[in-house]
């Protein structure tokens, strides 16, 4: 039990990020890459890094309005991420459908299918806004782990 707590305590110092593109126009994905790859915004200072496998992820960033074509794949990948996880909706598309709302090929908003924790609107949001959202997601993740009230 003590080892388990130790693991929990140390894991909050390195939340791994996973990106899901749910039919995004790639604008938000570029901004997500910017937050991680450009030294100016460097999301790795918070201990985050992007991982390739959903099974390693702690914080999942979803972009795009959830098109009908990609819906089942997104839900499959999202269900592979171990609990507790924090879901961050990046951009206006996953939050409300944005400019694509009520389109014939859109099945969003994403909280119809997935419990979202943090929203960060923008088209696309600034890298600083995404950093803010990751910081907020980190706080929620700590609450889910039971380390913070």
């Amino acid at each position: 039990m003590a080892f388990d707590d130790l693991l929990k305590k140390n894991s909050v110092r390195s939340p791994w990020l996973f990106r899901i593109n749910a039919g995004s126009c790639n604008g938000c994905d570029v901004e997500l890459a910017t937050t991680a790859l450009i030294p100016r915004y460097d999301v790795e200072r918070l201990g985050c890094r992007y991982c390739g496998s959903p099974r390693h992820a702690d914080i999942v960033l979803i972009t795009g309005p959830l098109t009908t074509r990609i819906r089942d794949q997104v839900l499959r990948v999202w269900n592979e991420i171990p609990e507790p996880k924090v879901t961050v909706a990046v951009g206006i598309c996953p939050i409300s459908g944005g400019v694509f709302r009520e389109g014939y090929s859109i099945d969003g908003p994403i909280d119809k299918y997935i419990p979202v924790d943090v929203n960060v609107p923008g088209c696309p949001p600034r890298p600083q806004a995404i950093l803010e959202a990751v910081a907020l997601g980190l706080k929620i993740w700590k609450q889910k782990l039971g380390l913070e009230a």
Binding site: V118, A129, I130, L136, I140
Partner: peptide, 14 residues
């Protein structure tokens, strides 16, 4: 003002 990150509970309050 670009500070837009908020929790899901505030979704319809912004």
């Amino acid at each position: 003002n670009w500070h837009s990150a908020h929790a899901e509970a505030d979704k319809y309050k912004v």
